[in-house]
Structure formats: structure tokens, C-alpha cells
């Protein structure tokens, strides 16, 4: 039987929205990791904390721009925040993810910017003088905790937004929010590893790397739960986007990075065998396995958003596909 979700229309959330989901996830995840290190880390973690704040701020700004570009009428983007016919009343709906998401992204952007300013001042960038209340102390720690919460929100509401529709795949399982949160954390850790592999303390990089591995395992379990709860809509994956999910996300984006983390010797063996070009390539992969793993996690995280969105976007209204249905 065809699920009822196959009788809805696709919203054409595509080439601006896929990168937004990816970058927004990294931004939210990066802030969350920084918040963890602020609360439970120590002095050597400072450079990662600051990098997390910078990434979160840049991601929030780019994300906002992508969202505005996606609108049919970009000049009216502020209608999301204020009721244009009833100023200055706010446009806020607690039951509409796109509405509370717009506000959540605003709040996240504000906190991330404040945190990044505090970090930049502490590093004496842009000629700023340090303002300690934005870089240490109880107020700052409370702000960072709130930002960490917002980080999770920005990373996860996008999945909830897709579920709170009537579209195939998205609305058929309640797991998308959780899946996007997991992917946000893994891609953020990968981004931090790439950004700071030469600058961060070795112990911090090691922690990021093992955190990423643990998150990838969780992500794989959530992905399986997502597919298992789709019901009849699982058919949507019998095609090109299913192949992308299996090869790009599961194999390249999760399993190979996990192998690089836990079984690096598998890749050493290829290098030692000196099997022509392939051997050289794999030897390099093994030498730079943290970089290789991070790049693959990022590619997998992007392909996850792409596959989840496009698998549903490609589904036409059921009447157009089979003229006489049952």
C-alpha cells in the first residue's frame, strides 16, 4: 500500500537548503563541543574552544544567508521574525519548526558572535582588548552552556522541520532530528580536527578523534533506526539516493573513518605492500589518517543531508506516477 505521504507535493527545498543543513549542523555541533570543553575540559583545550566559537559564528552567518537566498521573495525574509502587517509584534509559532527555527538560529547566532568576540579579544585579534566577562567567569560559562543548548537546537531542528511535514521519507519516521544531531556532532568534530590538527594540543586532538568515532557509531545506529521506522516509505531508497546513502554515507562516511580510527594497521599493511599507485595512496591515507578520516566524515555528513532531502524531493504526487493507484 502506498503511504498517505505520497499524496503531498515537494517543497523544492534543494540547493540552498542542503548546504544550509550541512553548515548549520557543523556550526551547532562546533559550539556544542566548545561548550563541553569549557565545562569539562582544561587549559590546553582553549584553542579548540575558540575555534569552535569562530566556526559557529561563521556557520550561523552563512546559514542565515543561504536561508534568505532560498526564499521565493528574499527581501521579505524579516516576515519570518516580525508580523509585517502588525508591527512590532513578533512572528513566532511554537508549533511551527520553520518559525521557532528562525528564532533559534537568531539566538544561536547572537550567542556565537558574543562568544567569538570574547575569544578574539582574548587572543588580541583585530586590535581588540580582552573583556574578561566574555571569556571567563560564571556569566561566560552560563552563556556558553546556553549556547551549547542552542547549538543542539540548530543542529537538530532541521530534522524535526522535515518530519513536521506530510512528505514521504521525512514525515514517515520520527528519527530525523536525532540523526541530524548525531551527524552535526560528527561533522563538527571532523571540522575542528581539520582546522586545528597542527595547532591544537595532541591530547585535545586525540579526544576529538575518539569522540568523533563514538558519535559515528551512534549515528550509524540512529540511521538504522531511521530506516527501520520508515515503514512502506523505505521503497524511496530503492534507487540512486539509496546507493548514495549506502556507499557515500554508511561506507565512506562512517565505516571507513571508524576503521581508520580503530584499525589503522589495516591501512599500514597496504602501504608496506607498496602495491603501485594504490599502495602509495593508501600509505598516505594511513600516515594522515586523522585528516583522511575527517574529510570522509565531512563528505558523508554532506551526502546524508543531500540523500535525505533528494530522496523525498524526487517523489512526485502518487497520482502522477501511477494513474490508477490501487
Amino acid at each position: 500500500m502506498i503511504p498517505d505521504t505520497y499524496f503531498s507535493a515537494a517543497p523544492d527545498w534543494t540547493w540552498w537548503i542542503v548546504p544550509y543543513f550541512f553548515i548549520g549542523g557543523i556550526a551547532g555541533g562546533a559550539y556544542f563541543i566548545s561548550a563541553l570543553l569549557v565545562w569539562f575540559g582544561r587549559a590546553e583545550d582553549r584553542p579548540v574552544i575558540h575555534a569552535g566559537f569562530y566556526i559557529a559564528t561563521i556557520g550561523a552567518v552563512i546559514g542565515g544567508i543561504l536561508l534568505i537566498l532560498d526564499l521565493g521573495r528574499p527581501e521579505r525574509f524579516w516576515h519570518m521574525l516580525f508580523l509585517n502587517q502588525d508591527l512590532p509584534r513578533l512572528a513566532f509559532k511554537s508549533y511551527s519548526p520553520i518559525s521557532f527555527g528562525a528564532w533559534g538560529l537568531m539566538g544561536f547566532g547572537a550567542i556565537a558572535t558574543a562568544s567569538a568576540l570574547g575569544a578574539a579579544a582574548a587572543e588580541r585579534r583585530f586590535g581588540l582588548r580582552p573583556f574578561p566577562w566574555l571569556n571567563r567567569g560564571p556569566f561566560w560559562k552560563a552563556l556558553v552552556a546556553l549556547g551549547g543548548f542552542f547549538g543542539f537546537f540548530v543542529a537538530g531542528y532541521t530534522g524535526v522541520l522535515l518530519t513536521v511535514t506530510n512528505r514521504p521519507v521525512w514525515a514517515d519516521s520520527p528519527m530525523l532530528g536525532m540523526l541530524f544531531i548525531a551527524s552535526a556532532a560528527s561533522t563538527a568534530a571532523a571540522t575542528l580536527i581539520l582546522v586545528g590538527r597542527r595547532r591544537f594540543h595532541t591530547a585535545t586532538i586525540e579526544w576529538l578523534s575518539s569522540f568523533d568515532a563514538a558519535v559515528l557509531v551512534f549515528e550509524l545506529l540512529v540511521l538504522i533506526a531511521f530506516l527501520a521506522t520508515l515503514g512502506a516509505a523505505i521503497d524511496a531508497w530503492l534507487g540512486w539516493w539509496g546507493a548514495v546513502l549506502l556507499v557515500g554515507v554508511v561506507l565512506a562516511g562512517i565505516l571507513v573513518p571508524l576503521a581508520l580510527h580503530w584499525r589503522p594497521r589495516w591501512f599500514d599493511a597496504y602501504g608496506r605492500r607498496d602495491a603501485g599507485r594504490r599502495g602509495v595512496w593508501l600509505a598516505r591515507l594511513s600516515a594522515e589518517r586523522k585528516v583522511a578520516s575527517a574529510v570522509l566524515v565531512l563528505v558523508g555528513g554532506f551526502l546524508l543531508r543531500l540523500a535525505v532531502i533528494m530522496a523525498s524531493e524526487g517523489i512526485e504526487h502518487a497520482r502522477l506516477v501511477r494513474e490508477t493507484l490501487p
Binding site: 503531498s8 507535493a9 515537494a10 517543497p11 521565493g72 516576515h79 511535514t165 504526487h317
Partner: peptide
Amino acid sequence: VCNGCRACIAACPFG
């Protein structure tokens, strides 16, 4: 008033 975010398109169960 509409700014073309298209949330309503995906929300309508009838397309």
C-alpha cells in the same frame, strides 16, 4: 505577506 519559504507546500497532505 508570504515570503516563499514553502513550508506550507510540504505541510499540505493533499499537495
